[in-house]
Design a protein around this nucleic acid. Sequence first.
DNA 1: CGGATCGTTGACCACCTTCAAGGATTGTGG
DNA 2: CCACAATCCTTGAAGGTGGTCAACGATCCG
Lengths: 225, 225
Amino acid sequence: MFVRASTDPVFRLSSLGVLGMESDSNPVVSLNEFTYRKGMEIYGEKEPADYVYRVKSGAVRSYKLLSDGRRQIGAFHLLGDIFGLESGGEHQFTTEAIVDTTVRLIKRHSLDSLAANDALVARNLLSMTMDNLRHAENHMLLLGRKTSQERVAAFLLEMDKRLTAAGVMVLPMSRRDIADYLGLTLETVSRVLSRLHELGILGFVGHNQRQIALLDRRQLAGLDR
Amino acid sequence: MFVRASTDPVFRLSSLGVLGMESDSNPVVSLNEFTYRKGMEIYGEKEPADYVYRVKSGAVRSYKLLSDGRRQIGAFHLLGDIFGLESGGEHQFTTEAIVDTTVRLIKRHSLDSLAANDALVARNLLSMTMDNLRHAENHMLLLGRKTSQERVAAFLLEMDKRLTAAGVMVLPMSRRDIADYLGLTLETVSRVLSRLHELGILGFVGHNQRQIALLDRRQLAGLDR
DNA sequence: CGGATCGTTGACCACCTTCAAGGATTGTGG
DNA sequence: CCACAATCCTTGAAGGTGGTCAACGATCCG
């Protein structure tokens, strides 16, 4: 783990809209795709933030490390999410592909010049950053004040909203990833999930511990304050 | 506590620059000052975010509450800080004056129209929001992964940077505020501070427990990872 | 099939919380 | 200016939630 990608990721070109914000008459700026294999680093904390990314397929984790290896995941980036939009020109997180992942990427400086001329693009950048801020603020409440049960319940509800298809969510991330997102250990996450399973609040689909069906969202929401 | 201001705060007019971002030829938008007494609420979570604020004097806490009263303070706003700049038109936090506090306030919609016409203002809004985001991201690491000692050390270093004059910092907030900022109890904060005092890392000035001199910033930084 | 990774569960433990008491400081009214 | 209450801070003792350490089973992947 934490191994730097030694080979260049798969490279392809695309002519789709910038960040999904298709302005009427914009020149298509340097816009292409990369594919990262499971576990590969996309960028490191404190590297220059020259690109902004959008998840085309797969999933990404953003995290910070303490010197002794303790890890805090700040966000998971799923299909359609934009990440890497940071202040000051330096990335604030390290990001890795959780599974094989394809991202669309945009040069930051072309985005900046777009924003300088188009107030709508500027508004979108601000709006996206504020969305990230709101997520971080809610997560501070979770990390600072919620119990393990409340944290896991909140996590399940968040993921349910973001990636449930046909009543089942397929989590791309491991128990350790979940734990590092929730400020817990993987054992505690596992125990709480087992407990919720016993209580009939969730079910595992097949024998895959990452395919989860929420059987009682109402009750789950009650476990989160 | 948590009592809503029943009387209108002191009202004055001012003709200074907007948010400190004096553009060359901007019309001075609705710009005035309010003073809040210690403990008074400035705005509540989920209220419409019609104004943005700048601290002229005093100090402010921004927090979220859980249904049973657990509180997480997301930030302290000190002299010169801007707060209340939120997404979606709704405030994400409740804010209160920690001590008697005067704020300058700006109508949000006038700020928006300014930004629509002036790319520099728009950049400043984005930059400020990104600064808030970075603070929140670092605080997530603290809340999710740091020990009580590391949290208090980080807090002291942050406050030292922001409000030390003549080698002494005068904390406006109580031990409970600090605890709710750091995701601890007030007893734990008190114990850690006592320990740091025993170790000679900090000193109390006079008999006031809120006037603290950092005697060994190097060692303190070592206690934070 | 064999190794590596992942997830679950149990036993024990530590850090921080809870509960409690007492002292110090601040604010208020006489 | 003092008396008194309210708030704040500290400190001690006990307890609990979640962490640590360990073993084992399941799944994945070569």
